[in-house]
């Protein structure tokens, strides 16, 4: 009943990774091309495309911000041993059940040029964060952050410490242990967190409304646009897109979660 050691795994893995990357890139390219073709035939695309691409841009930027900060803080919370870790995680998790209007209110208080903090920020960076896309991105990032944080902390804490210790005995410095051992082993959980964070970022409504102002062309994301086009025909197209995205997101989360279990 002894298992025979697997032969030459390193080379196969690299080949596998290369093949997967090529497939993903080709798939993306094809998907993009297909989307453009389909776009010609989707009804009311000219009206829908504005909010659609705005939502995509906002969500992409937001998930990058939320993902990076979420994984970083998740790592700190998972590995650190300072008191008050759970309180910090609770604070970071607030946006999950905090009403979006409360989030929007506090964002306005912090970012509006009229307030102390906001005015300071605007002077220092020369950039206004309210009533434009930046505000939407921040609102979406705040919505996505808690999911990235919790998933990252859970996944990183679940990595077998024996593997990290082995890496240290091999002489790897801490940052390499993290990047080459810990994070790769935690990638499923982190990916699940990013996926649902993406879904939340795309679907953000209340805070985006308050800090963005629902300005057509500038801050009217897809979830806001649906409300304004309630009685118009293009509403169905928007609905279709949003529902499809949500289904894809939740299926992804489900698959990533199950394979971990």
């Amino acid at each position: 009943m002894e298992r025979e050691p697997e032969a030459a795994p390193a080379l196969d893995k690299r080949k596998k990774a290369a093949v997967i990357s090529v497939v993903v890139l080709v798939g993306f390219g094809l998907g993009f091309g297909a989307a453009h073709l389909v776009a010609r035939y989707i009804a009311y695309w000219d009206i829908v495309s504005g909010p659609f691409f705005l939502s995509l841009r906002v969500a992409s930027a937001a998930i990058v911000i939320a993902g990076v900060t979420g994984v970083a803080s998740g790592y700190v919370l998972a590995k650190g041993h300072f008191p008050g870790r759970d309180v910090l995680e609770t604070i970071g998790s607030l946006p999950i059940i905090l009403p979006p209007t409360v989030v929007g209110y506090y964002l306005l208080e912090v970012l509006s040029p009229g307030t102390q903090v906001g005015g300071f920020l605007t002077r220092v960076t020369g950039h206004v964060f309210v009533y434009n896309a930046s505000g939407c991105i921040i609102a979406a990032a705040v919505a996505a952050y808690p999911f990235c944080l919790r998933a990252a902390r859970s996944a990183i804490a679940g990595v077998d410490p024996a593997l990290e210790q082995a890496a240290r005995t091999m002489g790897l410095p801490n940052w390499r242990v993290a990047s080459q051992v810990t994070l790769p082993l935690a990638r499923r959980g982190i990916a699940a967190g990013l996926t649902i964070g993406c879904a939340r970022a795309l679907g953000e409504y209340g805070a985006t409304l308050m800090i963005g102002g629902d300005i057509n062309g500038r801050t009217r994301t897809l979830s806001l646009a649906i409300l304004d086009s309630f009685t118009t025909p293009e509403r169905d197209t928007m609905l279709l897109i949003l529902v499809l995205m949500a289904v894809i997101a939740m299926t992804g989360v489900g698959l990533l979660g199950r394979s971990r279990a």
Binding site: I196, R200, G203, Y205, G206, S223, L227, R235, A246, V247
Partner: peptide, 17 residues
Amino acid sequence: ETAFSLPMALPPTVVGW
């Protein structure tokens, strides 16, 4: 479970609609 979890991923405006 995915189907019942959709409201978590959908914008509240869609659910409301």
